[in-house]
Nucleic acid binder design. Structure first.
Length: 388
DNA sequence: AACAAGGGTTTAG
DNA sequence: TCATCTAAACCCTTGTT
């Protein structure tokens, strides 16, 4: 059914790529739950649910993640805690553990630091995921890459006691999808000549960056598999998803991705809380101050200052409203963040007798960073190695 | 034409 | 029925240089 015009032959345009990159993607399995197993081994073998309690009622909140025992029974990220409790009510020993992000971050940092040394260049994507460019140290040879990858996997098990999944491929996209296809506790290599076969029959929704909304639109246009997407007319895709994203999706479906593995620096910080009860501005003024403080501290600790300060309101219908303001100078001052956020809340909630906006959750965001001068103790810091 | 600001949406973990 | 939290990237519109 799917007509494939994509032949093994390369496209004929210009510089035959200096590309023999080999990229390794590492993903710690059910990371938060595994961290909990690490400090409390008696949890092993039981369903574990990592919870974010909102404080509205003793059980209200959402599931952050769960180990595979719980997942197999239907507990997924994002579902209400109550629902997870229902699913697991007959499971003896099921554990509902409040998320302890600081602890996970500490463990993550230790491991990331040891991974960083094993890469030509390194990119931490999240608390439990990273890319390693291993082109040079593998001499662009997948046999060598396999040895390196397996060493890393074992080292993490032995030194840190954690299971992980590793994917290896010619770029970040393919390495990540290779890892996704192999988890948990997996290892998979997809070589350049295997990319097309690897991708073509997977549902489009499996492509990184294609979520539920995009998948639905694609399906409605007859695109069910990544192979379909790879040969779909580019102008149609541009029409559907925009001039940038349309063509990008098509390239991704072909397994193409030139994005380099590079250190990431934060571009924004935000903090959002759930209010005990839905409220308007006049009632949650006291909640804004501690939020401003947290962000100010974080800016000062990391050495950033932000020019843009914004607020976020989640309505009872779970719609998101945002307002922001950009200053002519960067700041990290608690008072300043608080004062501007308060101002924005006033404006957003209608100061002159309009209908009052009601919030379920409120938050503050700082963005548009400018680096503060100097910082001691960090060598990797000088940010001049930033090639874009 | 290029860029910045601002608000919304989508994705991911 | 119940629905966390953080961060990034993109889209579109509007306004400025």
């Amino acid at each position: 059914m799917l007509k494939r015009e994509t032949q093994p032959s390369r496209n004929s345009l210009g510089a035959s790529s200096p590309e023999q990159r080999i990229v390794l993607c590492i993903d710690f399995d059910y990371f938060f739950a595994q961290c909990e197993e690490l400090r409390n081994p008696s949890l092993k073998g039981k369903p574990i649910v990592i919870c974010v309690y909102s404080g509205r009622t003793p059980t209200s909140g959402a599931v952050s993640t769960a180990n595979y025992i719980a997942r197999k029974l239907g507990v997924k990220s994002g579902i209400p805690i109550v629902q997870a409790m229902k699913i697991l009510k007959d499971q003896k020993g099921a554990a509902f553990i409040p998320m302890d992000h600081e602890y996970y971050e500490t463990l993550s940092e230790e491991i990331m630091d040891s991974l960083r040394e094993r890469a030509d260049s390194f990119e931490q994507v999240s608390v439990d995921e990273a890319f390693l460019d291993i082109t040079a140290r593998s001499h662009s040879d997948y046999g060598n890459a396999e040895i390196i990858g397996k060493e890393i996997k074992e080292e993490i098990r032995e030194r840190h006691g954690l299971a992980c999944t590793i994917g290896i491929g010619p770029n970040k996209l393919v390495s990540k999808m290779a890892a996704d296809s192999a988890k948990p506790d997996g290892f998979r290599i997809v070589r350049p000549n295997e990319v097309e076969q690897f991708l073509k029959d997977l549902p489009v929704g499996k492509l990184i960056g294609i979520g539920p909304k995009t998948e639905k639109t694609l399906n409605q246009n007859g695109i069910k598999t990544i192979g379909h997407l790879a040969v779909f007319p580019e102008d149609k895709l541009s029409e559907l998803f925009g001039k940038n994203l349309g063509p990008l999706f098509r390239r991704m479906a072909r397994g193409e991705d030139n994005d380099p593995v590079r250190e990431r620096f934060p571009k924004q910080f935000s903090k959002i809380i759930t209010l005990k009860e839905n409220a308007s501005t006049f009632n949650f003024r006291d909640d804004v101050e501690p939020i401003a403080k947290v962000l100010s501290v974080k800016l000062n600790q990391t050495g950033f200052k932000s020019k843009t300060i914004g607020i976020i309101v989640i309505t009872p219908e779970l719609k998101t409203k945002t307002r922001s303001k950009t200053l002519s100078y960067p700041t990290s001052s608690e008072e300043e963040i608080f004062s501007i956020a308060s101002q924005l809340f006033q404006e957003a909630f209608g100061s002159q007798g309009e209908e009052t906006l009601i919030a379920r959750r409120i938050g503050v965001r700082v963005a548009n960073f400018e680096e503060k001068t100097k910082r001691v103790g960090d060598e990797t810091e000088s940010l001049s190695k930033y090639i874009l």
